[in-house]
Amino acid sequence: MKKILVTGANGQLGSELSELSSGYSQYEWVFADRSQITLDNLNLLKTQLSKIHPDIILNCGAYTAVDKAESEKDLAFTINHLAVEVIAKYAKINDIKLIHISTDYVFDGTSSVALNEEAETNPINIYGASKRAGEIACLKENPDSIIIRTSWVYSKFGNNFVKTMQGLMKERESLNVVNDQIGSPTYAADLAFAMAIILGSDKWVPGIYNYSNEGEISWYEFALSIKEFGNYNCNVEGIPSVSYPTPAKRPEFSLLDKKKIKRIYNLDVPNYKESLKKMFI
């Protein structure tokens, strides 16, 4: 029985994989939290990996506090770059299959068409730069890795835009949401299922893949859908990003092209509204 190590077990994706794992009993699943896989302590990390000795690693652990990363650059790079390098090296030496999760924030947002896997990267914040460094290290140390870039992740687990909006819409009469950042949300349960499809496939095609739900929307439009499914009375208004300044700059356009993952792994990618509705049922 193959042993799968999932890092970042308590995060959104890790939690969704945990829920999904009961349907995949052909694997032995190890869900590791920060105490079991310590991504900010590289020497300890090497020991921990050897102790678990997995056959497959799903690296879902990351430093994801986008704004905080601007003032915690070293920590962000340790977790998102150097720890990924350690994991990729370990996977290569021990012939372990590795799926590493990355982000649309590796792009600068200046595109006007959906970004494919070959699109030029140019991160505009520390978080994006640390994740891009992690991608480069991952493929350099272990060219057999699969990297999945995703965007706007949400889930019934953890903290995310959907849950924040739900809370605010219950409390407030009106709400402003930025309407000039374009992309597509990702329901973490869908991404977890896509990873399971890859693992169960008879082919392993290394490299970078994009995965998010279908649809091209702004955060404002996403908020309107949340309002619709939650049947909230809150008035939602769209505002430009300049009216809502944040420590980290966000890409204006980071819509991901999913043709590659759909073609190679015959994946059916749901529309964002279809997936968002599942969270409200």
Rank of each mutant, 00 (worst) to 15 (best):
M1C: 13
K2P: 01
K2Y: 03
V6K: 01
V6W: 08
T7I: 06
T7H: 03
G8N: 07
G11K: 00
G11P: 03
Q12W: 07
S15K: 08
E16N: 11
S18Y: 15
L20M: 04
Y24S: 11
Y24A: 04
A32L: 06
R34H: 11
R34N: 10
I37V: 15
T38I: 03
T38P: 05
T38A: 14
L39F: 03
N43W: 10
L44R: 09
K46W: 05
Q48C: 09
I52E: 12
P54K: 10
I57W: 05
L58E: 03
C60T: 10
A62I: 02
A62C: 12
T64G: 04
T64R: 02
A65I: 06
A69P: 06
E70K: 07
D74N: 15
T78Y: 12
A83C: 12
A88K: 07
H100R: 01
Y105E: 12
S111W: 00
V113G: 00
A114E: 09
T121Q: 14
T121R: 13
T121C: 15
N122R: 13
Y127V: 08
S130G: 11
R132S: 10
A133Y: 02
G134E: 05
I136A: 06
C138K: 07
D144Y: 01
I146K: 00
Y154G: 02
F157N: 15
F161C: 13
V162F: 08
K163C: 07
T164H: 14
Y187K: 09
A192K: 10
I197W: 01
W204R: 04
P206C: 11
S212A: 15
E214C: 12
G215D: 03
I217A: 06
S218L: 02
S218I: 09
F222N: 09
K227V: 03
E228C: 13
N233T: 14
C234Y: 03
S243C: 11
P245I: 01
P245R: 01
K249P: 05
R250H: 12
L255P: 04
L255D: 03
K262E: 15
R263I: 01
R263Q: 06
I264E: 06
D268M: 08
Y272K: 09
E274C: 03
S275T: 10
L276R: 04
K277V: 06
